[in-house]
């Protein structure tokens, strides 16, 4: 039976894993390959690097990080952030990544999804959708709007319609983040996840809002997610990946045993 994946996300800048609030007040959290290896050893089913480097030579630094990681971590590696062309995606894959995640660039130029999927296959193309509720709980039917630039810029796009369009263009997976919940610890937006997972045939990765193992269970059971991504809950060692998997297994959700999964 297909396992539900648990995916730690590492923000990378200047060749280091960093942690901050809305890309400011960054603190150094360690060496990306080392942390990725630790997570793989703890049972991570996949690793995501989110490149938040704005430096001019940031791309070369990131490629070096990917290369060093792929040499010693043998679980799938996804890189997101700043990839804007087929050539840039090729460079990231050549460095050893398995997938590339597109966010702003896909919204600006949806044909990029089609070109990259045609060149490298849909399985390598992840489209990340940051969504914000259009209205409060009083009006649940108002839906969600796609936002970009970490939630600072609304696009006017309906998140559900955009999800269907991205998959139609060739996205093999969607990474769905609730901007309302991100960083709040209030749990995933399961209504958003359910609306998108019911609409598209591809796997949906839940993101934004996890505080405890119960939230992961809800993302799968209520939201229909195929995988769950989280950052701070793992970095700050509030919960180990094994704890989350144990809670999911107890809820009857199929997960890969954390033991024996050293990458």
């Amino acid at each position: 039976m297909l396992r539900v994946r648990i995916i730690p996300c590492l923000d990378v800048a200047r060749g280091r894993v960093v942690k901050g609030t809305r890309f400011v007040d960054l603190t150094d959290e360690g060496d990306p390959p080392e942390l990725a290896e630790r997570y793989a050893a703890e049972g991570a089913d996949e690793i995501v690097f989110l490149d938040i480097d704005a430096a001019p030579d940031g791309r070369a630094t990131l490629l070096d990080v990917v290369q060093r990681t792929a040499r010693r971590v043998f679980v799938p590696l996804t890189v997101g952030g700043g990839v804007r062309s087929v050539a840039e995606m090729r460079d990231v894959l050549r460095a050893g990544a398995d997938k590339v995640s597109f966010n702003t660039a896909a919204v600006r130029e949806p044909d990029l999804i089609r070109r990259c999927a045609r060149r490298f296959g849909s399985q390598a193309v992840v489209v990340a959708i940051d969504a914000r509720r259009r209205a409060g709980p009083a009006d649940p039917g108002a839906g969600w709007e796609v936002v970009v630039k970490g939630g600072r810029e609304p696009t006017g796009l309906d998140a559900i319609a955009w999800a269907a369009r991205a998959v139609g263009a060739g996205a093999g997976e969607l990474l769905v983040t609730s901007i309302d919940r991100d960083g709040t610890g209030e749990g995933f937006d399961t209504l958003l996840l359910r609306a998108i997972s019911d609409r598209v045939p591809v796997p949906v990765i839940a993101s934004g809002g996890a505080a405890g193992p119960g939230d992961f269970v809800a993302a799968v059971r209520d939201g229909g997610a195929s995988a769950v991504l989280a950052a701070s809950i793992f970095h700050r060692r509030r919960h180990a990946i094994g704890d989350v998997k144990a809670a999911m297994a107890a809820a009857g959700i199929p997960v890969r045993a954390a033991a024996g999964s050293v990458g």
């Binding site: 039976m1 297909l2 396992r3 539900v4 994946r5 089913d45 849909s122 399985q123 093999g172 997976e173 045939p201 591809v202 796997p203 195929s226 995988a227 890969r256």
Partner: peptide
């Protein structure tokens, strides 16, 4: 149930 088939399986 869902395609592509992505993830760990037995």
């Amino acid at each position: 149930p869902r395609l592509p088939h992505i993830g760990w399986n037995q």
